[in-house]
Measured scan of single mutants.
Amino acid sequence: IDVRFTVNGLDVTVRVRTEEIAERVKELAKNGVDWREIQRIAEELNK
């Protein structure tokens, strides 16, 4: 599942395995978490 969001004007796409992880990623993006941090968290959750 590809999750797309915009952080500080940057369009970011993170690929995740499940809808649940996708929701977590969207939540982080909404809360203004840095995209590199979101990427790292997504990689952890995908394991």
Rank of each mutant, 00 (worst) to 15 (best):
W35R: 04
D11Q: 14
D11M: 15
T6C: 11
I38V: 06
T18R: 02
A22W: 04
K47N: 15
E19C: 08
A29P: 01
K26G: 04
R15N: 14
N8W: 04
V12C: 09
G9S: 04
V7E: 05
I38P: 00
K26I: 14
G9N: 06
R15T: 15
I21S: 03
R15Q: 10
E37L: 07
R24D: 02
N46H: 03
E44Q: 07
R17H: 13
V16P: 00
K26R: 15
V7F: 11
E20I: 08
K26N: 07
K26M: 14
R4L: 11
K26A: 09
V12F: 15
E37V: 10
D2G: 05
K26Q: 09
V25L: 15
I21N: 03
D2W: 12
E37S: 07
E23Q: 13
V33A: 08
A42I: 12
E19M: 12
V33L: 12
I21T: 03
V25G: 00
V25W: 01
V16T: 05
D2P: 09
A42N: 01
V16W: 01
D11P: 11
E43I: 10
K47P: 03
D34S: 13
R4S: 13
T13V: 15
V16S: 02
Q39L: 15
K47D: 12
L45D: 03
N46M: 03
E27Y: 09
A22C: 04
G9D: 06
V25I: 15
N46Q: 02
A22P: 00
L28F: 06
N8Q: 10
I41H: 04
E37R: 04
L10D: 08
R17T: 09
F5A: 02
Q39C: 14
L45H: 03
E20Y: 12
K26S: 07
D34E: 11
N8D: 13
N8L: 07
I1P: 02
L28C: 04
V12I: 13
V14E: 00
I21G: 03
E19I: 11
N46R: 01
W35D: 02
V16F: 03
I41T: 05
D34N: 10
R36C: 09
F5R: 00
D2K: 10
V7T: 07
L10N: 10
E43R: 07
L28K: 01
R24A: 13
E44R: 06
G9M: 04
T6P: 05
G32D: 05
I1F: 15
V12N: 02
V7C: 04
V12H: 13
F5P: 00
T18K: 02
T6D: 06
V3E: 01
R36N: 14
E44C: 09
A22G: 09
N46T: 02
E44A: 07
K47S: 14
L28R: 01
K26H: 08
G9I: 02
V33N: 05
R4Q: 14
I38K: 00
E27G: 07
G32F: 06
N31K: 13
R4W: 13
R40M: 11
I1V: 08
V7W: 10
G32C: 05
V3N: 01
W35K: 03
V12A: 04
E27C: 03
R36K: 14
V3A: 02
G9Q: 04
V7N: 05
V14M: 10
R36Q: 15
Q39G: 06
E27V: 09
T18F: 03
V25T: 01
N8V: 04
E23D: 12
F5G: 01
I1K: 04
E37H: 04
L10R: 12
R36V: 15
R4G: 07
L10G: 06
K26V: 09
I1C: 06
L10H: 14
E23M: 12
N8F: 04
E43Q: 09
K30R: 13
G32V: 06
I38C: 02
R15I: 10
E23S: 10
N8A: 09
R4H: 15
R17W: 13
I41F: 07
N46E: 04
V25Q: 00
R36M: 14
N31D: 12
A29E: 05
L45A: 06
I1R: 06
N31A: 14
V12W: 08
G9Y: 03
R40C: 10
K47C: 11
A22D: 00
E23K: 13
I41D: 01
T18A: 03
E27L: 12
V25M: 06
K30Q: 12
T13R: 06
D2L: 14
V16D: 00
V12R: 07
A42S: 06
L28Q: 02
D34Y: 08
D34H: 13
R17S: 11
T6L: 08
D34Q: 08
E44N: 06
A29V: 15
E19G: 08
R4C: 10
D11S: 13
I1D: 03
R15H: 14
K30N: 12
N8E: 09
I21R: 00
K47E: 14
F5K: 00
V7L: 10
E19V: 13
A22H: 03
Q39Y: 08
A42E: 01
A29C: 08
A42T: 07
E37N: 05
E37D: 11
I38R: 00
V16Y: 01
D2C: 10
L28P: 00
V16R: 00
F5T: 03
E43K: 09
R40N: 08
E37C: 06
I38T: 01
T6M: 11
E37F: 04
D2M: 12
T13I: 15
F5E: 01
N46K: 02
R4P: 06
L28W: 05
D34A: 11
R4V: 15
R24F: 11
R17N: 14
V7Y: 11
D11H: 13
W35F: 14
V33G: 04
Q39W: 08
I21D: 07
K26Y: 11
A22Q: 04
V14A: 02
E23L: 12
K30V: 10
T13Y: 12
Q39A: 10
R17K: 14
N46W: 06
V3H: 02
Q39K: 12
Q39R: 10
E43S: 08
T13M: 10
R15K: 11
W35T: 06
R24I: 15
R36F: 12
E20G: 08
R40L: 11
I1Y: 13
A29I: 15
L45Q: 03
N46V: 02
L45Y: 06
I41P: 00
F5V: 12
K30C: 07
E37P: 00
V14P: 00
E43P: 01
G9C: 06
V33I: 11
G9L: 03
E27S: 08
A22M: 06
I21E: 03
N31Q: 15
R40P: 01
E44S: 05
R36E: 14
